[in-house]
Design a protein around this nucleic acid. Structure first.
Lengths: 230, 230
DNA sequence: TTTCAGAAATTGTGATCACAAAAGTAGATT
DNA sequence: AATCTACTTTTGTGATCACAATTTCTGAAA
């Protein structure tokens, strides 16, 4: 497999080459632009980004630290492959982390912040109705992120995003092979819990949202998806 | 503050310069060798390791990805400072992550593996009795790691170690200012739970171990420790 | 057709250098 | 003594190059 094409990504001025490479790759992996097993080369990326190996290598190294990429023994760089068992572990960890983060955020969220979260949920439904899967996915991530980030001393978000990155590749496959995203809407439930400042209910709503969403794929379904991807 | 002295660390042959720098720094931070706020320079480290900026910069970048270091706006590299609130978040996240990991490991641990874990617990007590704080700390980490790693598809360990790294600096301060490590021994309790294959009890024992160990520092105690460190 | 050895191309690694930004220093001015 | 300015030093950034390991390609032999 060759180095895949990167989705466009505007470069903010003042951003270092390294940071740009990192942000762009990270985004690409998180939204499922890469297949599991895809191999990546430093020089290939450097050419694509019109830069040189040094900053690109740093970006790739950072991505391996957070589980988004993998340096093999033979020094090849690949998007990690997923097994059904590993998938299950990731989902159960996601539930543990995110219900924890939701619980710890409840007390900090103002009504104004909750309003913005509601707006994001509307954006998700708009995107789904329009059949824009990628947009819906990004909006969904933003919905979750906005909740957890309500906690100002929050330290779980980077870990949660690490899990999202590890799920990205299989998510990309799922998006291609599933006719439409049928999002079981636990979001309303979560929002109601936030408004009531009910920590237990918020944590449970988030857990259910994950469990019934991407977590809904069972052992067999994941196996089929992976087989489809080669 | 200057770049601090690194604890010795033998370099396995065949290990790349980058990997060596990463492993050595990581270890140093995890065992509390650095104070919060300590600044680090690429060239300083390169000299200390008798190498060049390129591999060192990669190592530092990786360490920032897992929260062990921080690149400031002005491009300075520092060991992150901790606030009491952040400390509390880290502890509560540690409890959530590790009790989850313990629970998911129980079913996979063989009696033989549990025996080895018991041996590690003995090593901890030996180190404590001898007043060797650093050794006790490392053995304690190894005790926890060995439990969680029993799960072959485990994905939580890197995240847990990320938390350990973020707690490392304050742990170093605590070790200097606490007369002796008084480890409330929930380890026996955890081991018993493992032997009974009791997931709930194992998770709870680990949670209690953390809560009554490093988690025992309250808001005020953490503030004092940080004040001592400047 | 398959297999295997050797050449060629590709790729990660790490040292070096030029550059720009930031920090630190020294001296003059108020 | 305090403050500001100009100069020097330090520091992160990124491009380049040589090197070694790996992979890929090529062609001959079975």
């Amino acid at each position: 497999m060759k180095t895949p094409v990167l989705p466009a990504f505007p470069r903010p001025e003042g951003m270092t080459t390294h940071d740009y490479a990192f942000a762009r790759l990270r985004q690409a992996i998180m939204v499922g632009a890469f297949r599991p097993g895809t191999s990546i080369t430093i020089r290939g990326l450097a050419d694509a980004l019109e830069s040189s190996p040094t900053p690109v290598r740093e970006a790739l190294r950072q991505l391996t630290s957070i589980g988004a990429l993998q340096f093999l023994e033979n020094r090849r760089i690949v998007v990690p492959r997923i097994t059904p068992a590993r998938f299950e572990e990731l989902i159960s960890l996601r539930i543990a982390l995110e219900s924890h983060a939701a619980r710890r955020a409840v007390a900090h969220l103002s009504d104004r912040q909750i309003d913005r979260i509601v707006a994001l949920d509307d954006a998700i439904e708009t995107a789904i109705a329009a059949g824009e899967k990628a947009e819906a996915l990004i909006a969904n991530q933003e919905f979750h992120r906005r909740i957890y980030m309500g906690n100002p001393d929050q330290v779980a978000m980077p870990l949660i995003e690490s899990i999202w990155l590890q799920l990205g590749p299989i998510l990309g496959i799922a998006m291609e092979h599933v006719a439409e995203l049928y999002v079981i809407d636990r979001h309303r439930e979560a929002i109601e819990a936030l408004r009531r400042r009910d920590e237990d209910a918020a944590a449970e709503a988030i857990a259910a949202d994950i469990r019934e969403g991407i977590g809904g794929f069972d052992h067999e379904a994941v196996g089929k998806l992976l087989a489809l991807a080669g």
